[in-house]
């Protein structure tokens, strides 16, 4: 962590940081995401390059888990067939809250090349589970994976943990969607 390595000591030996508990919790959550990798097709091959040392997916604090119970988010990488769709649904339901979904590649985003004539392919994994981040590409470059992961971390950082209803009400009021 950069803060601890600084030699100029900007906090004058005090070691006090001001912030909210929510920020601290979200910082922890977004920087230690365990993921369940659901590799289905060639996007999963690209994901191997992503995991290797050159692109180093673990720099985001992600650790692959083999069980949905231990995972914070699930990566759907590849073509979702109808036969697999049921299994994805089961795995997603087994994950503990809060849970996130990253959909990787054209096939799982919208059906990709199977969109028109694929009798066996689900046209987008968002038809069965809610997707947080879509990574486009066929398959995506590792840089696109980086961007997708950064977007997910951003999303987690902006989430509220306490007083959700209060904040939602204020938000709706601000946009004139409710009167009082």
């Amino acid at each position: 962590m950069g803060l601890l390595n600084r030699l100029d000591d900007p906090y004058e030996g005090g070691g006090i940081l001001m912030g909210t508990v929510e920020d601290l919790l979200n910082w922890g959550r977004s920087k230690s995401d365990y993921y369940l990798h659901f590799g289905l097709a060639c996007c999963a091959i690209e994901f191997m390059a992503m995991n290797a040392s050159h692109f180093d997916f673990m720099r985001f604090g992600t650790i692959p888990r083999t069980s949905p119970r231990q995972a914070d988010f699930i990566m759907i990488t590849g073509t979702v067939t109808f036969k697999m769709a049921d299994r994805i649904k089961i795995l997603y339901e087994q994950m503990a809250e809060p849970k996130y979904v990253i959909s990787v590649g054209s096939c799982s985003n919208c059906g990709g090349p199977y969109f028109e004539h694929g009798y066996h392919v689900l046209k987008g994994v968002d038809r069965i589970i809610p997707v947080d981040v879509y990574i486009p590409g066929c398959p995506p470059r590792p840089e696109a994976f980086h961007e997708g992961m950064i977007q997910l971390q951003k999303k987690i950082n902006e989430q509220s943990i306490f007083n959700k209803r209060k904040k939602l009400k204020a938000e709706l009021k601000k946009n004139n969607l409710i009167s009082k």
């Binding site: 109808f82 036969k83 009798y119 046209k123």
Partner: peptide
Amino acid sequence: LCPYDWEGFPLRKDYKVPEIYRGMKVS
């Protein structure tokens, strides 16, 4: 290859793609 409850034989020329499979829209 197909699920056990799949109906029809997909590579036949006269195959009709179903509208819905187990509550999921096909096309």
